[in-house]
Every structure is written in structure tokens, then in C-alpha cells.
Design a protein around this nucleic acid. Structure first.
Length: 979
DNA sequence: GTGGTCTCCTA
DNA sequence: GTAGGAGACCACA
């Protein structure tokens, strides 16, 4: 290569995505193979080769190469394991086109370059440098900002879609910095799509301004303490190291060892017409085939279509754990409103990125918040929401419990900084013992709701909330069913379960770089704490309006990431519908018999008191039995019993397991302690606590389910937790008799039998297990028989028990240590069992290994339905942390798929019951693999088959499991008998 | 009052 | 060995 030569470097990988999203879908006529990106690519390359002079570039290439990414793993992952950890799977109809575009490149007789461990961008940087050093010029065919750092006197970029050349002035205009400063700029802003951390709260505008002022990143970071804005200064100091790492991630390598030299990129003047035509014919691109034929003087009719192999796999595409979650089933909810479209957002990834970048740039202006105190103004806002089609809403109340809370007011937002608070029930300060009077000038609650109701139920206005189940339930109590809606907490949960928090403050910090006013600052804390209705209107407005403002901004930033990461259907089909389904369940509650519990409490108190006397006798004095510290001192100090395990703070453990061992060795006191603990546990946690949760008006207990607090997709229940009501011991089980159906009704309990083992058999594809489930066999006995060669007929209980423990162990990501513990056998023996199990069911070992490998590479694992659970610490250098995360990663697809299945059943249940004339059958509770219903006595027999059908068919049609699901269902007057 | 530790209840 | 929530105690503020 020499002076005057001009090298064209096509960013092949970048082009593929851009073309795919920019061009209308196109399928090969003969077989439907998707080819739109391939056609776009061929047209572009042909144009550049033939008449680049007529384009914005204005020069003819002498050298030409197409560069691709080799794989997702590059040296950047060494610097920062999280790099590109967010990457989503490419769309299904793009996958085959990766290979085809490489084929096309070869058909054009162009060098097709990729190097393991490097991104296309690094190769482009390297070749651009070589070209300039040789005295030539280079044009990079791409519009990716990551490449803009390379722009200079001899290097330009060319956007083929817009036919626009990007030189130094264009970079400066767009980003506010010279191209060489792009590295520092990107280091500051980060990149949420590639997962480059950057510094929170700094977007392109701020970054450019800072670089203008301080010159470069290093200077900026060393002088960060001079910055006036508090948050910005703190962030720059705190995240300085992240910024430096980011710089290394965005800095392109210009010294990649290249096998193909510059000279090999020289264009051959004589295009190989027949070869190219053969390919184009195979693709069935008739227009381009004709053009190429005319230009090369080759008659297309004389050329046979080439044989082109279609690969099913994308480049940089990890092992397939599950089928992609896109596809076949029911349509998304109605009333979906698309987020703002941006002109040059060609892909969901770029749109998501753009919105994330833009978020911190829009400063909060509390002075623009409005306090709405008359119906006319409220009506005006309602009209505004109808126009925008978007409304962020947040309610302010007197309690965290939506079943008890009184509405104090609500806030609305229709655009950033365009937010308002509508006080409804605010009271004057504490000067009056009766709580003071109503603050003047507030819209009446009923009038406000009358205005709001049609809007909140308007199918053309999307309502946005953060933890919307709370507001949904509160408004449901006022006869309003919000729809359609989105929940920013649930969006975040779908995107980042396991790796990040989903609370509003955390989300705001992370995505917007802003700290909202805290609730505490507004209502006070401790003794001086007041309910929200006592807060003066000005402060209340600032706080409440900001919450709505923040929620709207979060939605704008977060929502596009769903599509960008291929998670929209997980959100729409597994997550969002739960808000109203679970909201209804919480609203219904369940009847708990106060008398039964109170009687039990009395009995327990007597029993415990008697036990305490015996314990003091045996211990030779009084002490606090409930204090593990004191108990340990007595048992292992004063009495000199042999201590077993230690707790992590170095204390002797007094766990039930340790005490049981001592009891088995003939010691009386430990036995009594174990019994005492059981009684006091049942009393304090259940019989004493549950009545306190009976709602004063409904007379029922309304638990609260959290939709976003587990990593795997399970729900959790609290206040009270109704997912841990005792069942194992006879004594404990009695507590369930207090959960009853009202007069004339029955409780129905329906639970999945062995759902997790069935999911395991499906995902790990274990023929023996699948067969056993298909045949309806006793799965643990079958396992035992397979492992130990003992016939199922007349099998000793102990043998089956061990197999059962191993089966559970497998689901939990087995370790010899854990199994040994569980079965109270030596670790060697446990290890031998595991080995035997893996030999008998080799697919299990494969499943575990590929799940771990997948998680190590991507940072998450997926359920059968595409839900992701993140385990960033699986790459920890600490072996025990790593092992823990590996076990969790093995468990998550199993536990999570089962959770997805029951969610799907729950979402369909109300409609299925109603369709069968069972509208009076109500789903009340969920306990992971069990659903509890309340039904009129005469409806029970018809309800059970409907419930069973919905639950057993819940995976379909999204997935067809290779094992049947089985549901046992029973009805009774109370939960103990129904279960 | 708040937060950490220990223990124990569930699937 | 997985996933949770809660009560009691206790040291800290």
C-alpha cells in the first residue's frame, strides 16, 4: 500500500445488526430463509466497489476488507468480566444471516477478517493505523460511535445507510469533543449495552463539558475534588477506578497481530463474476444478479446457483440451554404504547442505549412541580395524559400496607419535570389533639377519583408505576382497576434479577444518576415521624411529584432494554400480568380462626412453662433459654458437654442438629431444649403473631406477595409469611386447622407433584426419569432401584430415603459435603453416591457442567421460558463463593422454570374458572408449588378438574415439556385437611 | 430504634 | 447442597 491508496474497512458485524433493523424483512421465496441483511450487505458492497466515487466518500477504494467479530470473549473480558455481559441473543431470523454474510464476502472475493480474542473494532483500528503508516487513507464503513476515536486527517467514517461521511467536524458536532477525546468521553459515560460501567450520572453532555474544562480523564480524576456539584464530585471520586477500567474497555487496540497483511487487501480489478453471480442466484436476489451480470459481462443464465450452507448458529452465540423465548403464544397485553422513537436508533440496543445516555442529561427541576388543588386543573392534567398516552402515577398513603392504607393524595407525571401532586386528605399539624382539621383547598377524594377513574382504565393511556401492585391494590379498594400498565420495578427485575436491586432509589441512582428526596426526610423518623397526610403541601408536592417524575424517567430508560435484550416476552407473559392476579389474591385474603389459635397459644404457654422449669432444674439455674449465647455457655461450658459445630462468629452452635446429637448420646437437657424451641417457635411465630394480621374490616388475613425479591422467579410472602406455615410435625400441622373456609364454602388445595424433578428430567433430558414420570412411577424408588440395584418391590424405607435425598441434592446443585450432612453419613460415602448417580444418569452431569459454563460466560442462567437469573459472583476468585454460585446457578433454571409454570397457571386461572361458570371460585394463596382456593361447597367438584387442567397444562403452548405435569387436589373445611 | 446473628419454619 | 421470611436476643447508636 502506498500514498494515494485508499483502504475501505467494512464493519461487517455492525452492519449486520444495522441492516437487519433498518431494512424491511425479506425472505427467500423458495424456502423462506430470512435474507434482508444479506441483500442489504450485497447491495452496499456492490455499490462501494462499483461507484464509491458517487457516494459521499467520493473516492474509489484500492484496498478493501470486511471485518467481523470472532466471538463474544475478548481480552476485554479479562479486564472486566462483566463486559458485554448484558448481551442479548440475536433475533431468530437474523441468526442464519451471520454465516450468509461471510459467504457473500467470499463471493465478492473480498478478504473476510476476524481474529480470536478481538472485536471487529480492534481489527479495524489496527488496519487503519497500518494504512496511515503506509501513507494511504482509510475509510471505515460504519456509523458506530465506538469507532469515532479513530477519525483523523487520514481516517474517516462512512455511514452507508445515510450516505454520509463522518470526519473530524462531524464528530465534534455530535459529541462536543475531538475524536481522540472520544475514549475519555466514553470512559466517563459508560455504555449500558456493552456494560461498560463509566461514572453514574455523567452523560455525553456533562462528559464533554468536563473534558473541555480539565483536558483529559486523568487530569479530571485527579482534580475531581474541585468540582462544585456534590453528587458529580462524589461519583467521580468513587467511580474513578471504574472510569479507568472503562477507558481500557473502549480504547481500541491498534496493534492486533494480523495474519493478512495490507497488500493482501488490494482489490483485484477483475471481479469474479461467475462466483458472485452463483451466490446471488442462490440467494434469489434477481435484480442484483442482473446488474452484476451486466457489469461483468457474464450471463447469469449460464451460471449455476451456488450451494450455500446455512448455519443455524449465530456468531458469538453461547451454548443453547433453552429454546429462545420468542414466538408462539398469546399476544402481549393491550394498550402497549411504544417509547419515544429516535431518528437514528436503528436497533433496540441503540434505542435503549440512547435513552439511557439521555437520562442523566435532563436535570430535575423541582420548581416546576405543581400542586393541584382544584378539579379544573386536575382535568387539565387528565387531558394532557390522554394526549401523551403516558402517565406515571404514584399514590401517597398513611401505611405501607395497601390493605390498610388511607389515600392521602396521588402524584402524576406526563413528561420529565412535568409532574404534579394532588393532595386529598392532608391535615393540619399537631396543634389539635383530634388530629387537626383538613387542609383547605383540596380536591374531594371521591370527586378526584371520579375524574381519575376513566383515565386509569382508559385502554389508550399506559399507566406507569414503581411497585405498581401497591397502587393497583389501593385503587382496587376504591373500585378502580388500573389498565393497561407497566411497572418499572418489574422491568428491572426481568432485566437484572440477582445482580441489582429494584427499589426506586437504587434504580434512580443507577439509571438516572439522581438521588430522589427520601421519605424519611419528608415525614421525619423515630419519635417525630408523622404520616404523610400530616406533611405540609409544599414538601409533599416536591416529594410525591418527584416520585412520579422519576418513575416516568425510569420507564423511558428501562423499557427499551427489554426488547434490546430479548426479554420483552418474559416481562409481558410472566411478570406484568401478575400485578393484577396477585393483587386480587391479596385483596381476597383468607379466613383465620382466632379462637383456634388462641386456644393453641394457651396450651403452648402452659407446655413451655412446664418445660422451662425442667430445663432450669437440669441446668442448675435460671437463664435465658432463647439466648444461644447463654445456652452455649451452659451446655458446653458449665456442663462440659462435647461441642460440635461452631457458628461463623466462633460461638458453639446450638442448632437443632447439634442438640439432637447430644440427645441421642443420652443427654437429657438438649432434648428438652429442642422440644422447648419447637413449642415457643410455634407460639411466637404462628399462634401469637397470626391473629395480629387479621384485618379489622375484612376479618381475614391478607399477606403481601413480593413479585421481585427472589433471583429465581419465585414469589415471596410476608406480613405474614403464609408460605412457611408448619406442616412437617403433627403439632405444627395443627396450625393449619386455623386456616378455614367461611360457612358454606370449602378450601381447595392443588399442588404440583414433584414439579422440580420433572423440570429437571426435561431440561437435563434424562430418559429414565422421563420414562418413570410418563409411567407414573414412584420416582425416588425408581432412582434407588437404578442406583443400588434393589427392586422397587419390597424396598427398605432407608434405601428410598437416601435416593430421595440425592434427588433433592441434585436439584440443589449437590455437594458431597451437603449430602453427607443431610444423610448423616461420611463424606466419602456421599461422594460415592454422587459418583454412582452421575454414572447412572450421565445427562445430569452434562446439564450441570453446561449450566455452569454458560453462567460463567454470560453471568446468568435461563429458565425454560427465558427468565434470567444473574450470578455475577460465579466468577469470584474465592472458591467457596464460586462454588455457592455454581450450585445456585444449577438450581435456578429448575426452581425458576417451576416458578414460571405456576405463574402461568395463576395468570390463566381466574378466566378459566369464570369461563366454566365458576366465577365464585377464588384463588387465595400460592405456596411455590401449591395453590389454595376458596369455593362454594356445591362448586368444588366442578372446580377441581378445571384447576387441575389449567395447572397441568400451564407450560403449553409456550413450551411442550417432555414430561407430564401432575397435580393433586383436595377440598376440605380447613387447610390441614385439604393439603 | 437499628442492624447483625442465630435459629427455624416452608417449598 | 437451592429459594425465602420472621422472631428472639444483643450490641450498637
Amino acid at each position: 500500500m502506498k500514498k494515494g491508496d485508499h483502504l475501505f474497512l467494512v464493519d461487517g458485524s455492525g452492519y449486520i445488526f444495522r441492516a437487519y433493523h433498518a431494512l424491511p424483512p425479506l425472505n427467500r421465496k423458495s424456502d423462506g430463509l430470512p435474507v434482508s441483511a444479506v441483500l442489504g450487505f450485497c447491495n452496499m458492497v456492490w455499490k462501494l466497489l462499483r461507484d464509491a466515487r458517487d457516494t459521499a466518500v467520493g473516492v474509489t477504494p484500492t484496498h478493501f476488507a470486511v471485518i467481523f467479530d470472532y466471538s463474544s470473549k475478548t481480552f476485554r473480558n479479562e479486564i472486566y468480566p462483566e463486559y458485554k455481559a448484558n448481551r442479548s441473543e440475536p433475533p431468530e431470523d437474523l441468526v442464519p444471516q451471520f454465516g450468509l454474510i461471510r459467504e457473500a464476502t467470499r463471493a465478492f472475493d473480498l478478504p473476510c477478517i476476524e481474529t480470536e480474542g478481538f472485536e471487529a473494532d480492534d481489527l479495524i483500528a489496527t488496519y487503519a493505523r497500518l494504512a496511515v503508516e503506509a501513507g494511504g487513507d482509510a475509510t471505515i464503513v460504519s456509523s458506530d460511535k465506538d469507532l469515532m476515536q479513530l477519525v483523523g486527517p487520514c481516517v474517516s467514517m462512512y455511514d452507508p445507510m445515510k450516505d454520509r461521511e463522518i470526519r473530524v467536524p462531524e464528530v465534534v458536532e455530535k459529541w462536543g469533543v475531538m475524536p481522540e477525546k472520544m475514549i475519555d468521553l466514553q470512559a466517563l459515560t459508560g455504555d449500558s449495552i456493552d456494560n461498560v460501567p463509566g461514572v453514574p450520572g455523567i452523560g455525553p453532555k456533562t462528559a464533554a463539558q468536563l473534558l473541555e474544562e480539565y483536558g483529559d480523564l486523568d487530569t479530571l480524576l485527579t482534580r475531581a475534588h474541585e468540582i462544585k456539584q456534590n453528587k458529580r464530585r462524589e461519583n467521580l471520586i468513587e467511580f474513578a477506578e471504574k472510569a479507568r477500567i472503562s477507558r481500557e474497555l473502549v480504547r481500541l487496540k491498534t496493534d492486533v497481530p494480523v495474519e493478512i497483511g495490507l497488500d493482501a487487501l488490494a482489490l483485484d480489478s477483475a471481479a469474479n463474476g461467475p462466483k458472485l453471480i452463483g451466490f446471488l442466484k442462490a440467494m434469489e436476489f434477481s435484480t442484483l444478479t442482473r446488474r452484476v451480470g451486466e457489469a461483468t459481462g457474464v450471463d447469469p443464465a449460464s451460471v449455476e446457483a451456488a450451494t450455500v450452507e446455512v448455519q443455524a448458529k449465530a456468531e458469538a452465540h453461547g451454548p443453547d440451554l433453552t429454546v429462545p423465548a420468542t414466538g408462539i403464544e398469546e399476544e402481549g397485553a393491550e394498550g402497549e404504547v411504544a417509547p419515544d422513537r429516535m431518528d437514528d436508533a436503528d436497533t433496540p440496543q441503540k434505542l435503549a442505549k440512547k435513552l439511557a445516555d439521555a437520562a442523566p442529561a435532563d436535570p430535575f427541576d423541582h420548581s416546576r412541580y405543581v400542586c393541584i388543588r382544584d378539579l379544573e386543573t386536575l382535568n387539565h392534567w387528565v387531558d394532557e395524559a390522554r394526549e401523551t398516552g403516558l402517565l406515571a402515577i404514584d399514590t401517597e398513603t398513611t401505611s405501607l400496607d395497601p390493605m390498610q392504607a388511607e389515600l392521602c393524595g396521588f402524584s402524576l407525571a406526563t413528561a420529565p419535570n412535568r409532574a404534579a401532586y394532588v393532595p386529598l386528605n392532608h391535615r393540619n399539624g399537631k396543634d389539635d389533639l383530634l388530629g387537626g382539621g383538613l387542609v383547605d383547598g383540596q380536591v374531594k377524594l371521591e370527586e378526584a377519583l371520579a375524574v381519575l377513574r376513566p383515565l386509569l382504565q382508559d385502554p389508550s393511556v399506559l399507566k406507569i408505576g414503581q411497585n405498581l401492585k401497591y397502587d393497583w391494590l389501593l385503587l382496587y379498594r376504591h373500585g378502580i382497576e388500573i389498565a393497561p400498565y407497566d411497572d418499572t420495578m418489574l422491568i428491572s427485575y426481568v432485566l437484572e434479577a440477582g445482580s441489582q436491586a429494584h427499589g426506586m432509589d437504587a434504580l434512580t441512582e443507577r439509571w438516572i444518576g439522581h438521588t430522589p428526596l427520601s421519605y424519611k426526610e419528608v415525614t421525619g423518623s423515630g419519635r417525630s415521624k408523622v404520616t404523610f397526610d400530616m406533611v405540609d403541601l409544599e414538601r409533599a408536592t416536591t416529594y410525591a411529584a418527584e416520585d412520579a417524575d422519576v418513575t416516568l424517567r425510569l420507564w423511558k430508560v428501562l423499557k427499551p432494554h427489554l426488547a434490546a435484550r430479548g426479554l420483552a416476552s418474559v416481562y409481558e407473559r410472566l411478570e406484568r400480568p401478575m400485578v393484577s392476579v396477585v393483587g386480587r389474591m391479596e385483596h381476597r385474603g383468607i379466613t383465620v380462626d382466632r379462637q383456634i389459635l388462641s386456644r393453641m397459644s394457651g396450651d403452648f404457654a402452659q407446655t413451655a412453662a412446664a418445660m422451662e422449669e425442667e430445663i432450669y432444674q437440669l441446668a442448675g439455674g435460671r437463664f435465658t433459654i432463647g439466648s444461644p449465647k447463654q445456652l452455649g455457655e451452659i451446655l458446653f461450658g458449665r456442663m462440659g458437654l462435647p461441642g460440635g459445630a461452631k457458628t461463623k462468629s466462633g460461638q458453639w452452635s446450638t442448632s437443632a442438629q447439634v442438640l439432637e446429637e447430644l440427645a441421642a448420646a443420652g443427654h437429657e437437657l438438649p432434648r428438652k431444649i429442642v422440644d422447648w424451641r419447637q413449642v415457643t417457635k410455634l407460639k411466637s411465630t404462628y399462634t401469637d403473631a397470626l391473629p395480629g394480621y387479621i384485618h379489622p374490616e375484612t376479618g381475614r388475613v391478607h399477606t403481601s406477595y413480593s413479585l421481585a425479591s427472589t433471583t429465581t422467579g419465585r414469589l415471596s410472602s410476608s406480613e405474614p409469611n403464609l408460605q412457611n406455615i408448619p406442616v412437617r410435625t403433627v403439632e405444627g400441622r395443627k396450625i393449619r386447622t386455623a386456616f378455614i373456609a367461611p360457612e358454606g364454602r370449602k378450601l381447595i388445595s392443588a399442588d404440583y407433584s414433584q414439579i422440580e424433578l420433572r423440570v429437571l428430567a426435561h431440561v437435563a433430558d434424562i430418559p429414565q426419569l422421563k420414562q418413570a414420570f410418563a409411567d407414573g412411577l414412584d420416582i425416588h424408588a425408581m432412582t434407588a432401584s437404578e442406583m443400588f440395584g434393589v427392586p422397587v418391590e419390597g424396598m427398605p424405607g432407608e434405601v428410598r430415603r437416601r435416593a430421595k435425598a440425592i434427588n433433592f441434592g441434585i436439584i440443589y446443585g449437590i455437594s458431597a459435603f451437603g449430602l453427607a450432612n443431610q444423610l448423616a453419613i461420611p463424606r466419602e460415602e456421599a461422594g460415592a453416591y454422587i459418583k454412582r448417580y452421575f454414572e447412572r444418569f450421565p445427562g445430569i452431569k452434562d446439564y450441570m457442567e453446561r449450566t455452569k459454563a454458560f453462567c460463567r460466560e454470560y453471568g446468568y442462567v435461563e429458565t425454560v421460558f427465558g427468565r434470567r437469573a444473574h450470578y455475577p459472583e460465579i466468577r469470584s476468585s474465592n472458591p467457596s463463593i464460586r462454588a455457592f454460585n455454581e450450585r445456585a446457578a444449577i438450581n435456578a433454571p429448575i426452581q425458576g422454570s417451576a416458578a414460571d409454570i405456576i405463574r402461568r397457571a395463576m395468570m390463566r386461572m381466574d378466566a378459566a374458572l369464570a369461563d366454566n361458570g365458576l366465577g365464585d371460585v377464588q384463588m387465595l394463596l400460592q405456596v411455590h408449588d401449591e395453590l389454595i382456593f376458596e369455593a362454594p361447597e356445591e362448586a368444588v367438584e366442578r372446580a377441581i378438574p378445571v384447576i387441575r387442567t389449567v395447572m397441568e397444562g400451564a407450560a403449553w403452548p409456550a413450551r411442550t415439556l417432555s414430561v407430564p405435569l401432575k397435580v393433586d387436589a383436595r377440598a376440605a373445611d380447613n387447610w390441614e385437611e385439604a393439603h
